[in-house]
Design a binder for these strands. Structure first.
Length: 876
RNA sequence: GGGCGCGUAGCUCAGGGGGAGAGCGCUACAUUGACACUGUAGAGGUCAUAGGUUCGAAACCUAUCGUGCCCACCA
């Protein structure tokens, strides 16, 4: 092998050796870091901050890889491109982990005390919190690590406090007793958005309530009989004739013998169940609203720990589920139980702990949504924010309907403590600091005795500020000036409302603009059979395992290749990663071949003059130009899967299988190495955003400009590839010829095979006269059999006709068989075309060019058919 | 109850008003100027079903079936 003074390249590409080395090199070069540069267009993506408890999973592949791709791509375009990383303190998720850790040592939150607990929490964060970052680095992600932010960094915490105080002073944050979602396991409230629904097999019971005057009764259905202890009414629809006589009367609550009224409320559905509903305002969201409308008492009967409490008689202290059983039995023996049936119930579940949510009344802090929501919806409707795919805009919009005020206080310690203090008289002081709180307390309430609210803020409160808090807001930084709004935000569809909407609302309110222009909604990842990936199903895939098996480049490529714009799920098939690995091997070997050319590689990446280009050169350059345009468009449109398809198609089939093979032809090839390395150099730049490592490794071996492919320029089809337009028309012809050749060459090989010619059979035929030199060369190289018998399938006129004149030394039986088969095929094509053209309405109504195309097709098939018949006749 | 996605080759999926495509798998053959394999070819499909629009539908419309997801206060 000719090495031209270079070290010989290893035979196999070794990702595990290359990837860490190249990543470290990129870090050392500082290529991921940018400062705001108003002279260049900004391209900024804020990384959705992973939880500090997080581990990389395949979902990160589908959402984070596109961010890395886009940042790398826009950097190569010369833009002021930066990807801003960070981490989320993940309030409840982290607290859950911490409490579990403490329990192992026999400790609890309370036994430790707040201060010591938080110290432990920070220790844990410092020790384990960066795991996901190192995993991201293994995946080749190149965010601007120098700008990494954490939601609880002092400046970001200050932003959180600033926002809270401002919203409070604007009257948008208030404290009040409302029905909230209580997570018994996490011992905290949750926002509506953190509640999920699950269908479960349950029971539904019907209970009879007798009227006070013993004149009648009413039957209600319930899935939660224990809540009857908190009933304060029975509601029926106002126009329900069955119950009109009962409205206004009182009924007796069984077991506790309390008297409650029958009321009329339009929210009750007459056609569901018995048409009468028990009203428990203290423990059910819809009942709560009825209670408010009718000024009903709202007793609480379930405590924060899930046990029965309050005016609940003998059920006091029982867990709510035990109480349910006891109450059903008591109702049964008292005769009040009418029925018990199986029922498929939609249960509300905590997305944090998986525990069944208990709605209950609690004094909490809330954020009013209405005035924040309005501009956020408007920004979308006016087209200031664009969703890709578009339909997710409706998901966003729909989220704003039926929006209740946002419960923002959490009863946990890990997070941003509310900047709220109370005086001994329970007067509320909200301030940015303790000093300010004291001053206010002294001024307004004549006291310096304050206790701080122990609660912390919902984790989404701080992540809602993310796109501007990481840019230094509320300070007027250069970053805010040039990098806000961001260009793109990428997430999964599951948090469009939970997170995207909050960033838009808070961004508009505090940073005076939308936080980002485009939201790309990446598909969620499922296994290849469409099931959710989960440990219990045993079908979850760890991206680190994929990296071990295929390398990070192939892992990324494999994931990306399966992304389709309109699809909302990605059924992950590992075979795609294996394909990508083989692709990398192929490219690596193409490099080895190019580096081994006897003429050596040129010193600079330049193309020869047009008149020095061969037909094959011109062909590959036109194909390269098309590929540049296609991939550029694909990235601009978030069509990552298409980009991967195009890369594979060009890199493997066009470049390796045909161009590189053709370049093996003997003869004068002075410009060969220049074109090969030039095209390959441009190609690896196109592929770099998806596969950063191998492309760097290859690029470094080829003639190139600059220090690293990471900052190399994106191929420009108008400038770098301008040869195309200046070639006086010869390029198109070259292309047609070469493509015809491709079809023929394949056929040659196959026919030779069918003739039973072994490797040692070297039939030498004269190269037919009249062929262009380059085609003649190809015969020698490719066919080796130098036998061309079947050009009939080639529709192109120039080459095909010439090939068809070549006669073969082949067993006539085989040829006859093949020709006959070919004739049958062509005949059916001809018949189809004739039938079509004989159709008067087709001629009359179809577009002119369609008809013309059909005529040409028919003519072509007719010619081919005649030719093959002719050949067949010659065989006698 | 509303909304959305998806049903195309054995598998995973592209495509998209006018000749059914890719990769993997399978079969045949070839294979020392790169390729722990590669290449060329072949077999394999009533494009879920039923209607409709159209000169023409796998594609557009409607309905149905299957499947997955999101939203909603049906106790």
């Amino acid at each position: 092998m000719h090495t031209d003074g270079r070290p010989e390249l290893p035979k196999t590409y070794e990702p595990s050796e290359v990837e860490p080395r190249r990543y470290a090199e990129s870090l050392a070069r500082g290529v991921f870091h940018e400062d705001p540069d108003p002279a260049r267009p900004a391209f900024i993506i804020s990384m959705p901050p992973p939880n500090i408890t997080g581990r990389a999973h395949l979902g990160h592949g589908s959402t984070y890889t596109p961010m890395d791709i886009l940042t790398r791509y826009h950097r190569m375009l010369g833009e002021n491109a930066d990807w801003l990383p960070g981490q989320d303190h993940a309030a409840i998720a982290t607290e859950t982990v911490l409490v579990r850790e403490l329990a192992k040592e026999g400790l609890t939150r309370n036994s430790l005390g707040r201060e010591a607990y938080l110290e432990r929490a920070w220790q844990w964060r410092d020790q384990y919190g960066d795991t996901i970052d190192s995993q991201f680095q293994m995946l080749g992600f190149g965010p601007d690590w120098d700008r990494k932010r954490f939601t609880m960094d002092p400046p970001l915490s200050a932003a959180v406090i600033r926002v809270f105080v401002r919203l409070y002073r604007e009257g948008l944050i208030y404290r009040g007793t409302r029905l909230v979602n209580w997570d018994i396991k996490a011992q905290s409230t949750l926002s509506d958005a953190e509640v999920e629904y699950e269908e479960r097999n349950a029971k539904i019971w019907e209970i009879r309530y007798e009227t006070e005057d013993a004149s009648g009764s009413i039957v209600v259905a319930t899935t939660r009989p224990e809540t009857m202890l908190g009933d304060t009414a029975i509601a029926v629809h106002p126009s329900d004739a069955r119950y009109s006589s009962l409205i206004g009367k009182n009924v007796i609550l069984p077991l506790v013998n309390r008297s409650i009224p029958v009321i009329a409320d339009a929210s009750v559905l007459s056609d569901f169940g018995t048409g009468a509903v028990k009203v428990t305002p203290g423990h059910d969201p819809s009942d709560y609203e009825i209670g408010q409308r009718h000024n009903l008492p709202m007793p609480s009967v379930i405590a924060l720990d899930g046990t029965m409490s309050g005016d609940v008689g003998r059920y006091e202290g029982m867990d709510r589920l035990d109480a349910r059983k006891a109450i059903v039995e008591d109702l049964r023996s008292s005769g009040a139980l009418v029925s018990e049936k199986d029922y498929l119930q939609k249960v509300s579940i905590s997305s944090r702990s998986g525990e069944v949510i208990e709605p209950l009344l609690s004094l909490q802090w809330f954020c009013k949504m209405e005035s924040l929501a309005k501009p956020a919806v408007e920004a979308y409707r006016k087209g200031k924010i664009r969703f890709v795919p578009e339909r997710f805009g409706r998901t966003y919009e729909n989220g704003f309907e039926n929006l209740r005020d946002w419960n923002i206080s959490r009863q946990i310690w890990w997070g941003h403590q509310l900047p709220v203090w109370y005086t001994p008289n329970d007067e509320v002081v909200v301030a940015e600091s303790e000093d300010e709180a004291l001053a206010i307390a002294e001024r307004d309430f004549k006291t310096r005795e304050l206790r701080r609210d122990p609660d912390t803020l919902d984790t989404w409160f701080s992540s809602g500020l993310w796109p501007f808090s990481i840019l230094g807001w509320p300070d007027e930084t250069a970053e805010m000036a040039h990098w806000y709004p961001n260009q793109v935000m990428i997430t999964g569809r599951d948090i469009i409302f939970l997170w995207i909407a909050r960033m838009v609302m808070l961004g508009l309110h505090f940073a005076d603009d939308i936080p980002f222009r485009t939201v790309f909604v990446a598909p969620l990842v499922f296994d290849k059979h469409g099931r959710k990936m989960s440990k219990s199903l045993g079908n979850s895939i760890d991206p680190l395992d994929l990296i071990k098996e295929y390398g990070a480049d192939a892992t990324r490529f494999g994931i990306i290749k399966q992304m389709r714009l309109e699809s909302q799920e990605l059924r992950f098939d590992e075979r795609a990663c294996d394909d990508a690995r083989r692709f990398n091997t192929k490219l690596w070997n193409a490099l080895r071949f190019i580096c081994s050319l006897e003429e050596g590689l040129p010193t600079a990446s330049r193309l020869p003059k047009n008149d020095e280009l061969t037909v094959a050169d011109k062909w590959i350059l036109t194909r390269l130009r098309e590929t540049v345009i296609k991939i550029t468009e694909a990235f601009d449109r978030f069509e990552f899967g298409t980009a991967a398809d195009e890369l594979l198609d060009f890199g493997w089939f066009t470049f390796c299988d045909w161009y590189l093979e053709a370049s093996k032809a003997p003869g004068e090839r002075a410009t060969r190495a220049s074109v090969l390395s030039y095209v390959f150099n441009a190609f690896v730049r196109l592929m770099h955003p998806i596969a950063p490592f191998i492309t760097e490794e290859i690029w470094q071996q080829l003639p190139h400009d600059g220090a690293t492919i990471v900052t190399a320029s994106w191929p420009d089809p108008l400038q770098d590839l301008a040869y195309y337009d200046g070639a006086g028309g010869s390029f198109e012809a070259a292309r047609t010829d070469f493509e015809a050749f491709i079809v023929s060459a394949g056929t040659i090989r196959n026919v030779k095979a069918e003739m039973g010619m072994g490797p040692k059979d070297r039939l030498t035929l004269d190269v037919p006269p009249g062929l262009p030199d380059w085609v003649a060369e190809q015969f020698a190289v490719h066919a080796k059999a130098e036998l061309v018998v079947d050009a009939a399938r080639v529709a192109g006129p120039t080459l095909a006709e010439k090939l068809a004149t070549i006669t073969a030394q082949a067993p006539t039986g085989l040829l006859r068989e093949r020709y006959t088969r070919e004739i049958a095929k062509l005949q059916s094509e001809v018949e189809r075309g004739e039938k079509k053209l004989a159709n008067e309405s087709f001629i009359a109504k179809a577009a002119l060019d369609v008809v013309e195309k059909e005529r040409e097709k028919l003519a072509g098939y007719g010619r081919d058919l005649a030719r093959v018949r002719d050949e067949l006749a010659k065989l006698g």
